[in-house]
């Protein structure tokens, strides 16, 4: 096993291209646990926290670009980001404990490809774009295309997510993320729901994205749930349809954290509650 801490993305990509298993340590909160259990035994660990570009939150096209090594806690300290995408920031600040948030990153949360990752439904709902850097250069892809199955990503050998771009918050837009856990903190989401929506001047929903976590092999973008809101005033009837659509989209499993029927039912409840919060935020 080797350790490297390059100071540029180019150097990181060159290292990652090497033969053998390579893993990136950004926050390390998943990787070190996997190494401890023997689940991961990389030949090379690449620490990306010495790369300036990965350490920054920058404004871009009215939105925000979040470097891959920016911790969730740092996201919460960024006033502009908090104002624009409160749901995404809340999701990031729900991951683990204060200690975990001091290390964990949303890029890491995305690339770890857990179906229960808290930040991912919020990012999907927000329409976030992942900037992937690799041997063939840079490419921008919607975040929902990164995870393909539990622990599996669409990234090629040598590629890494360098940053995540949150677009400009739409006028009269709002987002929210809620998750269900048995305790108040420290648990993996049993269900997660992210909603981002935008209203027109009359208060009619003109745009919506609804994403669910922990109810399928990867986070789901649920178009039917979004359709239930678009064109409505997001009234009780629309919210009930949203909840039904969210529940209908679930393909969960029974496991130690929850049953299928529980996840299906609560997915609808959380989608509705998240939409209510997003609506309030959109109304300002």
């Amino acid at each position: 096993m080797q350790f490297a801490a390059p100071d540029s993305l180019d150097k990181a990509v060159k290292l990652l291209k090497k033969l053998g298993t390579t893993r990136i340590v950004a926050g390390g909160t998943d990787l070190l646990v996997q190494m401890k259990s023997g689940f991961a035994a990389p030949d090379l660990i690449v620490d990306i926290k010495r790369i300036d570009e990965a350490r920054q939150i920058t404004e871009e096209a009215g939105g925000f670009r979040i470097g891959a090594a920016v911790s969730c806690f740092e996201m919460g300290e960024h006033a502009g980001l908090r104002k624009a995408w409160p749901g995404v920031v809340e999701a990031a600040r729900l991951i683990g404990s204060t200690q975990i948030q001091g290390r964990a990153t949303i890029a890491g949360n995305l690339c770890n490809a857990s179906p229960a990752a808290d930040s991912v439904p919020a990012l999907i709902a927000a329409g976030a774009i992942a900037t992937v850097v690799g041997p063939k250069g840079r490419r921008d892809v919607p975040v929902e295309t990164i995870a393909t199955a539990p622990g599996k990503t669409s990234l090629a050998k040598g590629e890494l997510v360098a940053s995540i771009l949150l677009p400009a918050r739409p006028a009269r837009g709002g987002d929210a993320y809620l998750r269900f856990i048995p305790r108040t903190e420290m648990d993996i989401a049993v269900v997660g729901a992210g909603v981002a929506l935008a209203l027109d001047g009359s208060g009619t929903c003109v745009k919506a994205r609804v994403a669910l976590g922990a109810v399928a092999a990867r986070a789901l973008l649920v178009d039917d749930a979004a359709k239930a809101l678009i064109g409505t005033k997001v009234d009780a009837d629309a919210l009930a349809k949203l909840a039904a659509a969210a529940s209908a989209a679930c393909k969960p499993i029974d496991d130690k954290r929850g049953t299928k029927e529980f996840r299906i039912q609560v997915a609808g409840v959380l989608a509705r509650r998240a939409a209510e919060t997003a609506l309030q935020r959109a109304r300002g």
Partner: peptide
């Protein structure tokens, strides 16, 4: 009363041998 339990699989193996899924109360609970 609320959350702690040993969870065994059909194979007789313990499924939650850690503080992540063996959920003792935290300060905010």
């Amino acid at each position: 009363a609320l959350n702690e339990e040993y969870v065994y699989g059909k194979d007789g193996r313990l499924q939650n041998a850690g503080f992540l899924d063996y959920r003792i109360p935290v300060a905010s609970d």
